[in-house]
Design a protein around this nucleic acid. Structure first.
Length: 434
RNA sequence: CGGGGUGUAGCUCAGUAUGGUUAGAGUACCUGGUUUGGGACCAGGGGGCCGAAGGUUCGAGUCCUUUCACCCCGACCA
């Protein structure tokens, strides 16, 4: 992509209501813009990042044997009346009527729809287990949307639902999905923890949350510095006061505060703030029973499916990556989430030698399938650098004043260091970095 | 859903207590020139139904009524 042809409207000022770094930088960097309360448009850069995260999630789930489907976003109210959630979910479900006055709901989640899909299509234990997922828009009419993409009303979520003939098999799938989630978040390059969680309103027996560690996280979690143990404080403390008191503390305050009790492994427990980006539940037969979805077991006896459900907040992850990885100048995307890996910055486009090298490198990197953008705008050096830092391309090749000595510089967004590299070696140098 | 606040140029905001030329600034944008390694400078220019609808008045961005939208603090939540 040529920067001169790209729709990337960056700004110097952030909207006054954006308080979090991810919100400010994503808006300033031209990734997203607000359409209404809790509603966001994705502009080209935002769309690229969103798609990258989606693809990683899809790849890992497909490898884990999950089947991708796509359910309708608008669902008849009858589906929700059968499970009782038309009542219990209350105003969070946005209800609409069609021209015949029939009532519909914009899907906030899809347990009912997925059970209805499987019901009478999967009839034998021989067809189990089965894991179906979709990456689709959800709508929850939150009382108070905020923090940009972190708490929108319309958001993109991956939701998976598994069906099993036995409780044991459901638990096996649950553990397998936990491992799959770890692979996904590791690939995304975020610092995360798996914690034991409260099952909350959805119900079920066991659940675990995946948290990206960040100052602005709304949840407080307890983690061990030695083993993998972690828990949401909602799970360990019973009193509301205790939970509230801890939630009010800042990331720094919490990090310093160790819990007196030691972890069972002997390690030290401490508090951290986290953004919940994934949640896995052991559901049991709550929904299959409610919707009368059954299969025949080895003895030909009908039984309700044992189920588990697995969610990942895709759009929330876009913001979480930045919440965890930014500095005062802007975004710092991880390798797998960056909208373009290499930004070729021609310092002065009127300088023919600079421009020629920029074009040459641009073509060469494209041929090697590197995601590259060429900053060919008629702007000054400082302007282009600030822009590159705001957007957060992992590497910027600066073709500028050093060219007369036969070299260019490579700016590393993460370390903010500039390294001089001779023109002859630049292509190999970049390939080695990636 | 309780409490508070704000709607004026793409963005950040003055102007509204006390109604009165043609509604302002910074920034962004366009043109020309000078610049060219950290969001440049000078000159000129375009851009507004002052959130919407009613009303009061000779006259409304400013006063009154209604309404819509957005934000903040709580309660609730991927």
């Amino acid at each position: 992509m040529r920067r001169s042809r790209a729709f990337i409207p960056t700004t110097k000022e952030a909207p006054s209501d954006a308080t979090l770094p991810s919100h400010q930088f994503l808006v300033r960097g031209g990734f997203i813009n607000q359409q209404g309360s809790g509603l966001y448009n994705y502009m080209p850069l935002g769309k690229i990042v969103l798609e990258k995260i989606k693809n990683i999630v899809k790849e890992e789930l497909d490898k884990a044997g999950c089947n991708e489907v796509q359910l309708s976003f608008v669902t008849p109210i009858a589906l929700w009346e059968k499970s009782g959630r038309a009542e219990t979910m209350g105003k969070e479900m946005l209800r609409i009527k069609d021209r015949n006055e029939a009532e519909f709901v914009l899907s906030p989640t899809n347990e009912e729809a997925m059970v209805a899909l499987v019901k009478n299509r999967v009839n034998s234990y021989k067809d189990l287990p089965l894991n179906l997922y979709q990456i689709n828009t959800k709508f929850r009419d939150e009382a108070r949307p905020r923090y940009g993409l972190l708490r929108g009303r319309e958001f993109l979520m991956k939701d998976a639902y598994s069906f099993h003939a036995s409780l044991e098999d459901m638990k096996r799938e649950f553990d397998m999905m936990e491992a799959t989630y770890k692979k996904i978040f590791t690939r995304l390059g975020v610092d995360f923890r798996v914690v034991e969680a409260d099952s909350g309103a959805i119900g079920g027996t066991g659940s675990k949350e995946f948290h990206v560690l960040a100052d602005s996280g709304e949840d407080t979690i307890v983690i061990c510095n030695t083993c993998e143990y972690g828990a949401n404080i909602e799970k360990i403390f019973e009193s509301e006061e205790e939970i509230d008191a801890l939630n009010e503390k800042s990331y720094e305050e919490l990090s310093l505060k160790n819990i007196e009790e030691k972890c069972t492994c002997g390690g030290t427990l401490s508090f951290k703030k986290g953004i919940e980006v994934g949640h896995i539940f052991q559901l049991g037969d709550t929904y299959s029973s409610a919707l009368d979805a059954k299969f025949n077991d080895e003895n030909g006896k009908p039984q309700a499916f044992h189920m588990a459900t697995f969610g990942i907040g895709i759009s929330r992850l876009v913001a979480s990556v930045i919440e965890q990885n930014h500095d005062e100048n802007g975004c710092i995307w991880t390798k797998e989430t960056a909208p373009y890996t290499v930004n070729i910055m021609v310092s002065n486009i009127k300088d023919e030698a600079q421009m020629a090298l920029g074009e040459k490198l641009y073509t060469e990197l494209q041929e090697k399938n590197i995601e590259v953008i060429l900053d060919d705008r008629k702007e000054r050096f400082g302007f282009k650098m600030k822009d590159a830092e705001l957007i957060g391309f992992p590497y910027t090749v600066i073709i500028g004043k050093e060219l007369v000595n036969g070299s260019v510089q490579v700016y590393d967004r993460k370390t903010t260091e500039k390294t001089s590299v001779s023109v002859d070696a630049i292509l190999t140098h970049i390939m080695d970095l990636l």
